[in-house]
Design a protein around this nucleic acid. Structure first.
Lengths: 214, 214
DNA sequence: TAGATTGTTAATCGATTAACAATC
DNA sequence: TAGATTGTTAATCGATTAACAATC
């Protein structure tokens, strides 16, 4: 449990999904226990940092033993909110929207894709993995009447903010935005602006880093 | 120019693409000059941080005036290595690979997509935006003989490391990995492991943050 | 010139690492 | 028990913010 409402820093929060993933891999490889030292070596973190991170939420380990992998993964999943399920819609049924719809891990972790939306009449009415593509004009009405909590935006950047606004008006609680522009939301809605190209530009920076120095 | 080989921190580097994007938007809106204060308000950063960040690379501003938007964007693009062009291949021609192939900004910023690769015989031989999908068995040979610098991995995670190894053996300099697992590379190759789902889990964390506190 | 805003140094804040007593 | 490893406090390191002289 988190100690007395001390705010956990975003630096820690953004490492949690990585812990979750590595612990999942360990489970997959039938590893039952792990020390902060071993996990650190695996993930490229210090043992100290791992213990600090985990102790923001509680004492999940045991002196002299380490951590029970299954138990720890379950705890972190629960902290991340992955023990719940979420009704989702994808807005924009192009390649990226379809890629996300097809992603296996999505359903496994409790994300229930209820519908997709698009403007393209050729796509409307089609089905992707049992998921119907609906007319984007019906987005607001659908979101409102189907208790959608998460909206996933895969439309061109020109339309991302107006799609977000429609989602928010109809009580979406979170937006996962893949349009290459930052979408704004009110305080009671959470947002992740993904901006995929940023990691590509970081890559080219690193490719050229040496030649930057004088 | 970077002052005497002082290593720029990754915290700064990862903000550069965002500066580049926001400056591009300003250019698009015909804004010719901007102060660190205004840019900070726009991007949600302090003016002080912006000046600190930019001065890792040089004095691009002018006292009493601010920054010339076009000039600054060009400088940052150049720092990011975007003034060069790069030969790229996409490995995995499913939805995600196709989404990236279709991304407009990709070509605009000097990323030249030379070919795509897949195992699926139904995809091999097809064409996406003039780009041929080739047999993954020919990947190594193709990469070697076509001076490919960047490999983009969009295959299932089980195959991501072996694809990376093939790319590296054939002199790729950078890997942009979308498989949901961390790929390892030697020191002379740069890697960005994207792990898209991590931002989704951060989102669900933030959705549930309040209920975590005691 | 006067006002504005930079570049840069100093101060503060926060995150990471180190150390070690507690304990399984 | 002895060895291992945690949880946690203290020390260090790095990043952000504040302040201000320089200057356009």
């Amino acid at each position: 449990m988190q100690r007395n409402s001390i705010k956990v820093s975003m630096a820690v929060v953004r490492r949690l999904p990585k812990y979750y993933r590595y612990l999942g891999d360990l489970i997959h490889n039938d590893v039952m226990r792990i020390s902060s030292k071993e996990l650190g070596k695996l993930m490229g973190l210090t043992a100290s940092q791992i213990r600090q991170d985990l102790n923001c939420f509680g004492g999940f380990g045991q002196q002299g033993y380490g951590y029970n992998v299954i138990e720890l993964q379950k705890e972190i999943g629960s902290i991340l909110g992955l023990s719940k399920s979420y009704n989702c819609v994808i807005v924009g049924a192009g390649n990226l929207g379809q890629a996300i719809a097809n992603y296996e891990g999505f359903k496994r972790e409790g994300f229930i894709l209820k519908a997709m939306f698009d403007v393209n009449p050729r796509l409307i009415g089609n089905t992707i993995r049992d998921i119907k593509i609906l007319d984007i004009l019906d987005l607001g009405e659908y979101v409102k009447s189907n208790d959608i909590q998460i909206g996933i935006i895969c439309v061109p950047k020109e339309h991302s903010q107006s799609v977000a606004d429609t989602l928010i008006e109809n009580n979406v609680k979170a937006i996962w935005n893949f349009a290459p522009t930052d979408v704004s939301v009110p305080d009671n809605v959470v947002i992740e602006n993904v901006a995929i190209s940023e990691s590509l530009y970081t890559l080219t920076y690193l490719m050229n880093e040496d030649s930057l120095n004088i």
